[in-house]
Simulated assay, not measured.
Amino acid sequence: MAIPIPSRQLFINGDWAEPLLKKRIPIINPTTEEIIGDIPAATAEDVDVAVQAARSALTRNKGKDWAFASGAVRAKYLRAIAAKIKERKPVLAKLETVDCGKPLSESEADMDDVVGCFEYYADLAEGLDAKQKAPISLPMKTFKSYVIKEPIGVVALIVPWNYPLLMATWKVAPALAAGCAAILKPSELASATCLELGEVCREVDLPAGVLNILPGLGPEAGASLASHPHVDKISFTGSTVTAVKIMTAAAQRVKPVTLELGGKGPIVVFEDVDIDKAVEWTIFGCFYTNGQICSATSRLIVHESIAAEFLDRLVKWSENIKISDPLEEGCKLGPIVSRGQYEKVMNFISNAKSEGATILYGGNRPKLWFGRCCGIEGSRKM
């Protein structure tokens, strides 16, 4: 059954708000390359409004504000969010798939992990109550010392497109559990499910301003968050190039930054290995999430005595991977998230060939499903 693509605004101060400059970004289904909707595009003006809303959430209703609410109170909201996500799993998984191209089975698994993550941090939030004002033993009884855990304040959370809602949850859930007010900036390439998190927050009556969601372009929204004087911390997952810019902006105000920039970990195969198992895990590492994952096995080091046999089996396993519309049952490999990323991958292949590499399998764009309708209804605002 077809589902509509929700037309959302920015989520600020507990409600939907049109971007002040009225900018929007098209949603392109990477499977069909068709425009199936659009998302709001925040700019510096919207960032100012969201930061003010987040800061107000920390000080509103003196004595009952989010920052000093009990862990049990915060846990109640986190569990309510988890329950709503679980209820909406079929729709959210399908929306994630048409937004970023990953196989539906993976999107469904991601939604399960989203639920589990909110529940996990709900438990930790409750545990904070017992740790508040923990006494520290001192040699001199004249003095008393305590450890008091307090939220850092307003946090900016900038996430990539390969795990849109799950990666957002990895940052949002702990931030809210700790009593921070958060501003989530999802990738402009995949923001649809993150915006639906805003609707979930509305439905569970999360206090206004505790979570704000601002899709938008990096130079217009992300940069403004990184340099904003009233953002107390930044957490970013993405490229090293962007991280350098974020650290530079944060350094001007000596602002703490947490960065997750991925890696290029090799898989090393020795001669005494179970070759079939090693091939299976190599394939998994290469192609899970359509190969767009920071832990991808992008380098393979094989003992020369088994190299020929290993590569032969690697090609045979690759030939059996079902490449299709990611909504189809049994799909194991869907499309690259965007034309820009596709061109980047093709450039890698071209450069490798020019340097003498041999392509054992693939290397070209499969024409198996492009142009077909995926059963998702959408409209483009003009």
Rank of each mutant, 00 (worst) to 15 (best):
F118E: 10
W66S: 04
E45V: 02
R79L: 08
A57G: 03
V115K: 01
G153R: 03
K141S: 14
V268N: 01
C294V: 07
L10R: 06
Q9C: 03
N290P: 02
K102I: 15
M346G: 00
G198F: 13
L217F: 15
R299Y: 14
H228Q: 09
S295A: 11
V241G: 00
P26K: 12
P90I: 12
T31A: 15
S239K: 03
D65L: 00
P186A: 05
K381Y: 14
S295K: 02
D112M: 05
R202K: 13
M346C: 07
V49E: 13
L217I: 05
T31Q: 11
A250M: 07
T248K: 13
K171G: 03
P326C: 09
F143Y: 15
C373P: 00
I213T: 09
P26W: 15
Y361S: 03
G363M: 05
Y120M: 08
K277L: 12
V269Y: 12
P151L: 06
M1S: 10
F118N: 04
A307G: 00
R88E: 14
A278Y: 13
R88M: 13
Y163N: 09
A93I: 06
K332Y: 11
A173C: 07
G71R: 05
I234M: 04
L300F: 14
A93G: 03
D65P: 00
S318V: 01
T240Q: 04
K62R: 11
S56G: 00
A50E: 06
L225W: 15
I35S: 10
K22Y: 12
I306T: 04
P335N: 07
R380A: 13
G37Y: 14
K381E: 14
A75W: 11
H230A: 06
L314T: 03
R24Q: 13
I39Q: 11
S145V: 02
V200M: 04
K245P: 00
E150F: 09
S354H: 12
I213Q: 08
V231D: 07
P219W: 15
A67C: 03
P174R: 13
R313E: 08
K84N: 03
M247E: 05
S239L: 04
T32F: 11
L20D: 04
R380T: 09
G378W: 01
W161L: 04
E280H: 14
N61K: 12
E196F: 00
S137L: 09
S224N: 03
A130E: 12
G101H: 09
E260S: 09
D272M: 02
Q341I: 02
T289E: 06
V147L: 14
E199K: 08
K255G: 03
C374F: 06
G37W: 14
A251H: 08
N13H: 14
S56T: 14
S305T: 13
A93R: 03
K102Q: 07
S107T: 12
A251P: 05
K76C: 02
E309P: 00
L176A: 10
E203L: 06
R372F: 05
E196C: 11
A67H: 00
K353V: 14
A57V: 06
K144Q: 14
I359H: 02
R8I: 02
C286K: 15
L259C: 05
A17D: 01
S305W: 08
I152W: 01
F310D: 01
